[in-house]
Amino acid sequence: MRMNDALLGALLLGFAGWVWWLTTFFPSFPGQDYGPNLFPRILAAGIGFCALVLLLRGLRQRAPLLVVEGWMAQPRRVVSFLLIPLASLAYILVSDPLGFIPTAFLLLLGLFLWFQARPVVALPVAAGMTLLVHWFFAGLMRVPLPRGVLDSVL
């Protein structure tokens, strides 16, 4: 998926403007011209300039607004693609209440099966990897992985 340079430039120009607007709320540093807003403003201006170049260039090129690759028309591939961010999102939302072990196991199992691994392989690998990662990080390295529902058991 690729936006036309003009569209990308316009979006970025808006972004640069938003950043600049945010910097207007920064307090000034008494007695100095270089407060907290100096660098963000320079950078917003830089991004804005690059965006403008893109915008003008895109207008000259007259490319289609949005180019979409072939796979985007195949629902199965689109789901596969989205599953990676969605799985991360699921981890963010449920790992705290549910705990690391159930979350990681379900996540791995679900992804394995969607990516067409045989259940005979998927089940033991998901369980094994989950326990291995938990043992290594929570046990050996003392990373505070969430305990969740297994709190009283662990």
Binding site: I92, L93, V94, D96, L98
Partner: peptide
């Protein structure tokens, strides 16, 4: 997330 954490 914090809502969910709170409910958790």
């Amino acid at each position: 997330r914090s809502l969910l954490a709170a409910s958790g």
